[in-house]
Design a protein around this nucleic acid. Structure first.
Lengths: 158, 158
DNA sequence: AACTAACAGGACCCAAGCAGTCCTGATTAG
DNA sequence: CTAATCAGGACTGCTTGGGTCCTGTTAGTT
């Protein structure tokens, strides 16, 4: 279903959190503030730093800082940083050998316009847009029946 | 990386194949013509039939037929039929309990504009557009080093 | 009426990819 | 020099989807 990796979701949370302060923030600090497990936060931040979306400061009293304001970061960049290039995989491995029939496989390159459209759409939305989108929008709680043996009965939001 | 399921790719191939003829075509026939494994073709066709994208005819000399011309089928419909509703999953299960911090989780609903943008982009592209896109576009062959034990050394197109 | 070709709709198994953790090394403030 | 913190990679358990198969139903054909 056009799955977006959960890590990308975390990345957005982390970036928004970073925007709350101009000072450097440590990954344990962000983990505590967001509730995301610390190792995962660290992993996300490292990836974002490698892609230049956040600036890192090593050593004691180091941490992370936004490289740019939220408005300057397109959601496409975040997805690209975490999930890799934005492209719907199609006809990847040589498993479907049907393409030799006409020597012009009916799908080769077919997805290009689709990829382009999606990339364009995602490039037009900045993190600031996403931040603003939810401020005015309360969310409804959906209580979910859950076996007692499971994790804590956390209300799930749809 | 915004993975699109391979099944959806197959669905496009099958639908384009179906458009070649107004007569009903059997799934083994389509499998032979496209090179896609027959059971998989059958699975895709059954799903597409359930969603009304193709019309099925049961019994002897039965088969499948396009319910609408290619131009009338948006790629969004195909994706929706195979992969389910178009939505980037975010904050799905109750695992990330961090949202209770501010009682206004920093991501809830955040992806809605993104989803809407993608849905809009995909609704604007019909299968006919995809078919036309590749006719004029030759593809380059990338010979891939492949262990001899593998399947036939099929040239892979990128 | 019986037979057969074809779809319908599941159940099922296996593998790939990802979330999440941990470990070791490099860097820098105090 | 020491401690705090990032950098980078290796590893593992699990979820999900790709693919197969089986049984039932429908409808032409003889």
């Amino acid at each position: 279903m056009l799955r977006l990796s959960k890590l990308t979701d975390y990345a957005v949370v982390v970036l928004v959190r970073l925007s709350h302060s101009a000072e450097v923030q440590t990954s344990p600090g962000i983990a505590a503030a967001t509730g995301i497990p610390e190792p995962t936060v660290a992993k996300v931040l490292k990836t974002l730093a490698a892609r230049g979306l956040v600036a890192s400061h090593r050593g004691a009293h180091g941490g992370y800082r936004l490289a740019r304001p939220l408005a300057g970061i397109a959601i496409a960049e975040v997805i690209g940083a975490i999930d890799g290039p934005i492209a719907l995989t199609a006809c990847v491995d040589g498993a479907n050998a049907g393409c030799e029939v006409l020597q012009v496989c009916p799908v080769r390159g077919r997805w290009d316009p689709v990829n382009a459209a999606i990339r364009e759409a995602l490039a037009a939305i900045s993190l600031e847009d996403m931040q603003l989108a939810s401020v005015s929008r309360p969310f409804r709680i959906v209580s979910l029946a859950r076996p007692a043996a499971s994790t804590s009965p956390v209300p799930v939001v749809e």
